[in-house]
Design a protein around this nucleic acid. Structure first.
Lengths: 399, 399
DNA sequence: GGGTAATAGTTCAGTCGTACAACTAATGCG
DNA sequence: CGCATTAGTTGTACGACTGAACTATTACCC
């Protein structure tokens, strides 16, 4: 079923649907599933009951359904030092239902499979240079890679619930189209059919999916519930997460911080305007400012910065644009991803100074700037997690 | 019950609550209420059934409850030219449950009562100058005004469901506090107790409530489902509406477009930073640019513009800041309120030029700039409507 | 070792809300 | 005047949750 989401256009506003008996069950099934999945320590049926407020009897039937569907697994009863019948711990079932994350970016192409526990089950990442590439050829190649991976995990008895394709550009998830990806040189295509996959594949913006990966948190630090994720590379994209959900605006084309005005008298940008952030804090601009070739690897810049012990001039520009962002949307935590993760030590001072100087609410808010935790190729992880989150949100489809 | 919302802080994430049988009823009661309220032509019970997808029998019992609660009224059966038993049209009950909107702004103070049909039942607006005023005295005065109005409508048999107090500044609705309102000269106060009202009063930002008023739409033009509302006066505030709901960010302190960078080499702003939009497109800046005294009435500026037939220089700055806004949040419709409503003819060209030049998604979106429709003192209307929207969202509390 | 308290999980009758179908009510039309 | 048509009501069936009683399994104490 190679679908891209049907666009049920009606003249009347959609509005919420009528709630029937089975809507109740679906709602509570999701509630129980979340209770099992989003808790550090495994819960028992009784634990789920107290956590959700549902009756023990109700929880039992719901959990049984999740176990039967293969989404939840029972661990051996643990006879802890407490009196009473030992509890049966419930955990996300490993290696049963999995999500597939796909990505084409400027310098690599890859696919990653995650299971419900968050483990990486399999992955392939192919470095390359996809600047001004041919979408048909590249997507066919990624499709072949994905099919290989998918066949592999299916042979091991897992079910691939769906896939997300991350692209660095303006994407319409509902229509399944890519409007334009400047750094790939792609425009006006329908990427999903070109993959040739027999799966439910949806396209998404790379920064948005990377932000979702960030939500899972690092090994030591938990992710904040609301943050702005800024992915700095050749282009600069951002995503807004509020209460652990992506905020997409009208079409999902928000977060284009790379083209915020830093100085109207500044250099001309590839987008046609003058003084965009990208001309100060894009990867190529940072390289040139450091006296390096525009396409030098990031490591060269880091080495130079280590040696010179001087801040990046990009910091002031980035701080100014981020202050605008915070003034406009009121999110107090900023997570820097992409190249910025590694460059943060030489950016932090100027960014924080700009924020305290320019953000109106700064005296009343604890503004935080932190490095991304999600690791390399975060969009792959985010895409796979998004698929699995959809499974979690509607477990009844799997029962 | 002079409350300001309790802040149930728990260590665990709140999450959705368990759904019981009565949650079903509450959900469907809201669904039916919305169907009756948000439709231009009155619906019958059968009409509501087809519109909501609920069974006719279910709708009947739900409608009966709404009628019994006094939220919905039955009109005389209309024997239209069609065969069959005549339908009983259902309409929002006039003058039963009402909402109270309150506001203190720089140049006036007022209260307005709306009923469920959207009619203004009563209002008082007192012009004045509240720049650097004493919050205790001013709020006591507004409280007296509000009590007068409230007593009046209560004597006519109506029930005041609650009130919203609009203030031009940073407000924390949950805590019921005002952090700072620069143009009033107020900071760090709890306004609600100072009103001395025996009602559920909540504070809110003025631009946010004005945007809600805008949602009701004008007499001729329907309001868009998603838009950015920019309220331009001495200060410049904005609100973001997505799918007919306010987007508030983390604390409701978003939309501070007045302090977005227009030019880092520009004049120093009252906020301490340089080159903020307010220094170009704030009311006082526009007056001075036109050679008028900073506190001249808006009509003087309009007269001058009519005579000169020249665009406002503020247009370019405003357009630049709005382009940043659209790039960051992806909302295609911009509604200009406050002083901008009247000044739009002399701003439009430059604003639209900046948008098409700077917004990355401009080639793919129909960007629209339009004048606000909500009329004078929009925040009063928005506040009252917000109270009534809360009634609509949970009619079971009134049954 | 056996009794008791404690906790987990299951079973079952009770209640509530919706769906479906049959029924009554009221109108237009031929 | 009868029939078709549409609105609204009544009654039965079914599904989902609850609470209480019951079973299962452990720890602890004498």
């Amino acid at each position: 079923m190679t679908t891209a989401g049907t666009a049920h256009e009606t003249t009347t506003r959609p509005g919420p649907a009528a709630a029937r008996q089975h809507s109740l069950r679906e709602h509570n099934l999701e509630l129980v599933a979340r209770a099992v999945f989003e808790v550090p320590e495994p819960l028992s049926r009784a634990g789920v009951a107290t956590a959700t407020g549902l009756a023990r009897a109700t929880v039992s039937t719901l959990v049984d359904q999740l176990v039967a569907a293969g989404l939840v697994r029972e661990l051996p009863a643990v006879t802890g030092g407490r009196a009473g019948r030992p509890a049966v711990p419930l955990v996300p079932a490993p290696r049963t239902v999995v999500g597939l994350g796909l990505e084409v970016n400027v310098d690599y192409l890859g696919a990653r499979v995650l299971d419900l526990t968050g483990d990486v089950v399999a992955e392939r990442v192919v470095p390359g240079s996809f600047h001004d590439s041919d979408p048909t050829a590249v997507l066919a190649r990624l499709g072949a890679l994905a099919r290989e991976l998918s066949d592999e995990v299916t042979a091991s008895g897992m079910t691939v619930a769906g896939a997300r394709l991350a692209l660095p550009g303006l994407v319409d998830p509902r229509a399944g189209t890519l409007q334009v990806a400047p750094n790939l040189g792609w425009s006006s295509i329908e990427p999903v059919p070109l993959l040739g996959l027999d799966l439910d594949v949806q396209v998404a913006n790379e920064a948005k999916l990377a932000a979702l990966a960030e939500l899972a948190g690092g090994s030591d630090v938990a992710a904040p519930d609301s943050f702005v994720f800024v992915s700095g590379d050749v282009g600069i994209g951002a995503a807004i997460v509020v209460d652990r959900r992506l905020f997409l605006g009208e079409r999902g084309w928000n977060g284009e911080i790379g083209h915020v005005v830093v100085d109207p008298a500044g250099p001309r940008c590839s987008c046609g305007a003058f003084g965009c952030l990208e001309q100060y804090a894009g990867k190529e601009a940072m390289m040139r400012a450091a006296g390096l070739p525009a396409d030098a690897p990031l490591a060269d810049l880091v080495a130079r910065l280590r040696a010179d012990d001087a801040d990046l001039p990009a910091g002031r520009a980035l701080g100014s644009a981020l202050a605008d962002f915070v003034n406009l949307i009121d999110i107090g935590t900023i997570v820097l991803g992409g190249a910025y993760t590694e460059l943060l030590p030489w950016l932090r001072a100027d960014v924080e100074a700009a924020l305290t100087e320019r953000v109106l609410a700064a005296p009343f808010v604890d503004l935080q700037v932190r490095a991304a935790q999600a690791g390399p190729h975060a969009a792959l992880t985010g895409g796979a997690r998004e698929v699995l989150a959809r499974v979690l949100a509607d477990p009844s489809a799997w029962v």
